[in-house]
Amino acid sequence: MSGTALASAPAASTMDAAPPRRRRRWSAEKAVVMTVLWLYAAICVVPLLTMVLNSFRTHLEIASDPWPVPSDPTVENYVSAWTEASFGRYALNSILITVASVAISTAVSLPAAYAIARWRFMGRGAIEGLFMSGLLIPFMLAILPMFYLMDRLRLIDSPLSLILIYSANGIPFTIFVLVAFFRQLPAELEEAAFLDGGGHFTVFLRVMMPLVRPAIATVVVFRFVPIWNDFLMPLVMLRSRDNYTLGVGLTTFFGEYQNDWASLFAGLVIATLPLLVLFVFATRQIIQGLTAGIGK
């Protein structure tokens, strides 16, 4: 912040100076700012790059020179992490749990959000308020009761317990976003569809749902990331190795492979890759979603 003061004050105070001199000053200031911006970009990216590059080296190479120089890359670490340390299994579990949870919470939230946004019925405000309360209460408060609920349902150590918890946990946010989108749609669309003889269900499915597709994409991306990254819930609910997600798998892996850094880096990359792929395909959704409702 003090940097802003130092950087822009001289530029403004030379307003009345000769144009060439002003431009030179300005470009010097710009060069400094650009250097700082690139430097910070390096701070963000270099650690992640080190992770990726080291995952293609051997433990000996890392031990002798921790700064990765890409020479003679090997995929051996991935093979050993994937098969010996059963990362393949963990990844499969993570994908199954995340995809099923996002699918279920979106599927049940869509009709509910539509009804709340477009229909008039008794207790609509109360139901909307109840759903929204789920956004405010911290998750930690519910962990123990959830654990005992799953215990009674005999779902401890089952992926189903996590799928139920994540889908329920996603409902408030999903409904919150979708209601806002459904409310924006003009009423004439619905009326026209009713005049054409469509029932409530047909109108919802054929006319209204396709119109909120961008909102559905946002919701899916935004639920995917926290579920994929969650660690506490699987740590509490899962017991046997076959059911581990990537997060819990990673903790045991770090205990067992302490002396094989190359494989550790490969494991970290495997746990991150699906999110980076998602980011590449959905950068726009993520950046717009993070800044929704602010500024222009």
Binding site: V108, R120, M146, I171
Partner: peptide
């Protein structure tokens, strides 16, 4: 636009219940 349709109780129940049941129980 908001609440322009008056829907029958069965439709309301059918649309809201799945989300509400999951949310309330879990």
């Amino acid at each position: 636009a908001s609440g322009v349709q008056r829907a029958p109780a069965t439709a309301v129940l059918l649309f809201i219940l799945p989300a509400f049941a999951l949310f309330a129980v879990v």
